[in-house]
Design a protein around this nucleic acid. Structure first.
Lengths: 345, 345
DNA sequence: AATTAGCACTCTCGATTTGAGAGTGCTATT
DNA sequence: AATAGCACTCTCAAATCGAGAGTGCTAATT
C-alpha cells in the first residue's frame, strides 16, 4: 500500500467528515469553503484524483464530487478509533439512567438498546449475557395446577431459564420441594456437560425431573438462545440511502431473523476480546444485505463466565465519531453490571 | 343511512376485493372483465357514482377509477366477518406448530407473533397474558453473590417476575429460605392490593423483603408492563402505499414505542370480550400515524384471570379475508393454552 | 324504467427535451 | 508546486407532450 502524504490524510478525513454530514458527494469548491482551506480548489482536485487512484475515494459519475469507498471509511475509522471518548456529560447521563433503572437484566438490556439507538441514530442490537460453559446453580419446582409444574433453573453467571412442565400425574408441592432439594445437592456447581455422567437417582420423580432439566439445558445451549434486544429500527428508514425502500427492507430483515442476526454477531466477534471494538463496513463482502451499511460491534461481560454482544447498525456514512465511543462506553458499563451480578459458586 | 340495493352490495364487495389485490383504483371496464359481470361498464359506472355519493367509494382524481373509503372498508369487513373461517389445513399447520414447541409462555408468544405476521403479511403484535387483579402465589429467594439475591415471584395465573435485589448485608441461603417460607405462608393466595393491610412481620429480613416485593408488585401492575412481542415489521415496507418511506416510518414508530402501543391496544379493546374481534380502520381518527393502516385486534386468555391482546397491523387494503380468521384462530388457540396453564390456587 | 352505446372530456403517467449548474480534468501560467 | 482559466461532462429539475385510461352525460335501445 502506497503511503499517503500528510495533506492527503487530512484531506481524506475532511472529505469523509463532509460526506457523513451532508450525505452528498464532496466537491473541491465546497471543501475549501467549509473548512477554510488555504488551498485552491484546483489543488484539492489533484489530491482527490490521487486518492481516487489509490482506492479511497470514488466518483459516482464522471463529473461529480467524491464519495468515500469502503476502504476510505476503514482508514477513517482506524484513525479516529483510538482517541474517541464520549463527552463526560453524556457518560454521566447514560450511567445515571442505568443506576436508577430497576436492577434486572431484562431492564438493562432494553435500556441499553434504547440508549444505543438514540445516541447513534442507528439500529441497536444486544444479546443477553450468556455463559460459554454453563454451570448449574439451583432449581426450583413450583406446583401449579394439577400436573403442571413451573420449573426455574438458575445457572452460575446469573442466567435463568423457566419452563412449564407437564408431569405424568399430579404431585404435591411438598414432594416437589424435596425433589428440588435433592437435585440441588446433587447438581450444585456442576458444569452442564457433565450431567450425563451422573448416577441415576433412585426416586422416580427425581429421575424424571432430571431428564427434563437435561433436555432444557441442551436446548438452551444448543440453540445458543437467549433473547436479542433491538431498538431504533425506524431510525434508519429516514436515511436518504434507504429511500428506495427495498434496500432498507433487506437490511432490516436481518434484524428480524434472529438466527441470522445471531450468526452475524457471533461470526464477527469470535476474535474480539472483551472491550475490543469491531467495525464492519459494507457487510465486508460477507453480508450481501448489508452492502450499504456498517456495524459497530463490541463484546461485553466477564470473559469465561458470561459474555454478550452489542452493536449498532447504520448506513455506511453513519456518525462513527458518535457511535464508536457510545458503543464502547455502554459495553464497559454492561461489563461492570454483569460483573456485579455474577451468581457466585 | 340509505339502504344499498343487492347489486350495489355485491358490486362494492367486488370493488374492494379488486382493489385489495391490485392496489390500484378499480375501473368499470376491468371489473366487468375480471368478474365476468353480466352488465356493461356504463351500468357499473352509474352504480359506482351512487356508491361514491353515499360515501363508500372515492375517486383519487376526476377521471380515475374508484377506491374504497374507510366507510367502504368497514362495510366490507362487517359483511365478511361472521363467515370467515380459516381453512382446516391451515388450522392444523398452526396448531401443530404450537404443540411441538417448547411449553413456555415466551416461546408461545414468539411463535404466535411469527405465525400471525407470516400468514397476514402484516406486522403482528402480542402482549403476554396479564392478570387484571394479580394474586400472589409464591416467592423464591436465591442467594447469589454477597448481598445480591435473585427473587422470583409467581402469581396465580402463571405470571412470573424475577429481579435481583441488593440487601444491606450478606445473608445465608438458609435464612433466605426460611424467610421465603414464612412469606409464602403469609401471602399465599392474597390479592395484591390487600398487601398494604398486612401486619408487619417481626423478623427484620422478612420485613425488608416484603417491602421489596410490594415495590415490585406495584411497579409491575402500574406500568401495565409485560413484554410485547412483534414480528413482520419489514413485511409492511414492501407495500406500495409506503413507498414514500416517511409514512411507513411513522406507522412503524408506534410499534417501537412500546408505551404508545400498549395504550393503543388497551384503548381499542376495553369493550371487547374474549374472542371478540375489533377492526380499526385508518386509525379511526384517533391515531394520526395510522391514517393509512388498519389493525385487526383480539383479546385472548381467560376472563378475570389472565388476558392479553394480539393483533395485526397492515395497510388499509390488507387482506382481511386472511387476516381476520387467522387472528381469531390464534386468539382461540392462545386462550386454550392460557387456560391449560393457569396456576391453580 | 332500466340498461347500454357512443362520445367528448379530464387527468395521469411516462417519455422526451431542455437548460442551468455543479463539478471535473487538463493546460498554461505564476 | 500551486493555481487560474476554460472546455467539457453529467445530473437534476422543470417543461412539454401524447397516449391511454377512465369517467359522466346524453341519446338510443330493450
Amino acid at each position: 500500500m502506497i503511503e499517503l502524504t500528510e495533506r492527503q490524510k487530512t484531506l481524506l478525513l475532511l472529505i469523509i467528515r463532509d460526506h457523513i454530514e451532508s450525505a452528498k458527494p464532496a466537491s473541491s469548491q465546497k471543501l475549501v469553503e467549509k473548512f477554510h482551506l488555504d488551498l485552491s480548489p484546483a489543488t484539492i482536485r489533484n489530491e482527490m484524483a490521487a486518492l481516487t487512484e489509490m482506492g479511497y475515494l470514488r466518483q459516482p459519475h464522471t463529473s461529480a464530487g467524491r464519495v468515500p469507498t469502503e476502504e476510505g471509511y476503514r482508514y477513517f475509522v482506524s484513525q479516529m478509533m483510538p482517541n474517541a471518548e464520549l463527552p463526560e456529560a453524556v457518560q454521566h447521563t447514560i450511567s445515571h439512567q442505568f443506576h436508577q433503572s430497576r436492577a434486572d437484566m431484562d431492564q438493562w438490556m432494553t435500556l441499553a438498546a434504547s440508549i444505543l439507538a438514540h445516541q447513534s441514530q442507528g439500529v441497536s442490537v444486544i444479546t443477553a449475557p450468556h455463559a460459554e460453559q454453563s454451570r448449574f446453580k439451583h432449581v426450583e419446582l413450583i406446583s401449579t395446577q394439577g400436573r403442571q409444574v413451573l420449573m426455574v433453573l438458575v445457572f452460575v453467571g446469573g442466567e435463568v431459564s423457566q419452563q412449564i412442565l407437564t408431569l405424568a400425574e399430579p404431585v404435591t408441592q411438598e414432594r416437589l420441594s424435596q425433589t428440588a432439594t435433592r437435585l440441588n445437592a446433587l447438581l450444585a456447581g456442576l458444569a452442564v456437560d457433565k450431567f450425563s455422567s451422573l448416577a441415576t437417582p433412585s426416586d422416580p420423580l427425581d429421575q424424571d425431573i432430571l431428564t427434563l432439566i437435561l433436555q432444557d439445558v441442551r436446548r438452551t445451549s444448543e440453540s445458543n438462545s437467549g433473547e436479542i434486544y433491538t431498538d431504533g429500527l425506524t431510525n434508519v428508514l429516514s436515511e436518504p440511502e434507504f429511500a428506495e425502500s427495498d434496500e432498507a427492507r433487506r437490511a432490516l430483515k436481518i434484524f428480524e431473523e434472529r438466527s441470522t442476526l445471531r450468526d452475524l454477531l457471533a461470526r464477527s466477534t469470535t476474535n474480539t476480546n472483551i472491550g475490543g471494538l469491531q467495525v464492519l463496513i459494507g457487510g465486508e463482502g460477507e453480508w450481501e444485505e448489508l452492502r450499504q451499511c456498517s456495524m459497530v460491534i463490541a463484546r461485553y461481560g466477564v470473559s469465561g463466565i458470561a459474555t454478550g454482544t452489542l452493536g449498532v447498525l447504520g448506513p455506511m456514512r453513519m456518525s462513527y465519531t458518535k457511535t464508536i465511543p457510545t458503543v464502547r462506553y455502554v459495553a464497559g458499563l454492561l461489563s461492570n453490571l454483569v460483573n456485579d451480578t455474577i451468581v457466585g459458586e
